[in-house]
Amino acid sequence: MDEKKVELLKDGKRISGRAFDELREVKIKLGVLDEADGSSYIEWGNNKVIVGVYGPKEVIPRHMENPSKAILKCNYSMVTFCSKEEHGKMGPNRRSVELSKVIREALEGIVETNLFPRTQIEIYMVVLEADAGTRIASFLGAVAALLDAGIPIKDIAVGIAAGKVGGKVVVDLDKDEDNFGEADFPVALTRTGDILLLQMDGKLTKEEVEEALGLIFEKSEVLLSKLREAVEEKYSKEVVKELKFSNKIIK
């Protein structure tokens, strides 16, 4: 943990002004890339993630195929300029390898892999700008891209990173809260309440865990509606694949 002590609560409120149970603004767009079989673009607070999926397709090399189901190949990566403080290195690192695995295992809980034995489905999540909660935003992007591709899934799923700041349990940590708070607790779940992804670091009492899970389950409704809205938006008119950013200058 950092030596610098940062006050995350002011007069009992979050510095950002958000309520303890308030999510940042989330925008979801389905269908943003041309080559990929399915794609999505997510803006969550200042997080920006783009996702592309391919498949099901033949496995190469063939000996890696699973005779009873499709294998998921997930890759989470960050561009070198996604952090304010520094220039990152290109290529995978230990953190991105772990997150790729954790997200893959979460998606394996919903993708109907037994419908496509001896195939693979590839999911590429690229973080263009990071502001805490990138794995959760990437997971959301992956679900949206699977919907865009028409790859069958059991149920839609979303995630929220809860945490603890200034002794209070909150949802959707921003960067300072993630860096200087007392706990980080990302969870992803289906509509029926099956938990697909769960990680935690920091210090939480059992009561706090229960409180956090309660908030996560409750607030996931907000994200589920946003996902439905994004699908409705895709079909509200002619389907056009384009990638558009907020707060930018267009030419």
């Binding site: 890339l33 041309d34 080559e35 200042n46 920006k48 300029f81 996604c82 952090s83 304010k84 263009l128 700008e129 990071a130 990638l243 558009k244 950013f245 907020s246 707060n247 930018k248 200058i249 267009i250 030419k251």
Partner: peptide, 22 residues
């Protein structure tokens, strides 16, 4: 088409599209 300045963490950023190449 060209967009720029959209990545807040970068000191400079841009996205260019020619046809479908991005």
């Amino acid at each position: 088409s060209l967009e720029y300045g959209m990545i807040g963490t970068a000191e400079g950023s841009a996205i260019a599209k020619i046809g479908k190449t991005t």
